[in-house]
């Protein structure tokens, strides 16, 4: 299982801040595809995924117990 976090507008889109799913051994691209089918519109080309608090690439593979976060365009400062 992995933990998945959603922030800001994505938390409002999904209606949840956090959930778990079975993604061990699958890629970030798989995760994005799954999220898009569950929450249409989340894969809008601007959203990045972080794994264990580091920005990840589509081919990166998720491990058991990893934390994934959907990061919409940031607007701090």
């Amino acid at each position: 299982m992995i933990r998945i976090f959603y922030f800001a507008g994505l938390r409002e889109l999904t209606g949840t801040a956090e959930e778990t799913a079975e993604f061990t051994g699958k890629t970030v691209a798989d995760l994005m595809q799954w999220a898009e089918s569950k929450y249409p519109g989340i894969d809008n080309g601007a959203v990045r995924v972080a794994i264990n608090e580091e920005y990840a690439l589509p081919d990166d593979v998720l491990g058991e117990g990893d934390t994934a976060a959907f990061i919409p365009p940031v607007s701090g400062g």
């Binding site: 922030f7 800001a8 507008g9 994505l10 409002e12 889109l13 519109g41 809008n44 601007a46 972080a50 920005y55 976060a69 990061i71 919409p72 365009p73 940031v74 607007s75 701090g76 400062g77």
Partner: peptide, 24 residues
């Protein structure tokens, strides 16, 4: 900070609100 630190702001106006950098 504005490029890559995962922090988001929502502006709240008299007639609405929006996450800046978001989809709306």
């Amino acid at each position: 900070i504005k490029e890559m630190v995962p922090i988001w702001k929502k502006e709240i106006w008299e007639d609405g609100e929006e996450w800046i950098g978001g989809q709306k």
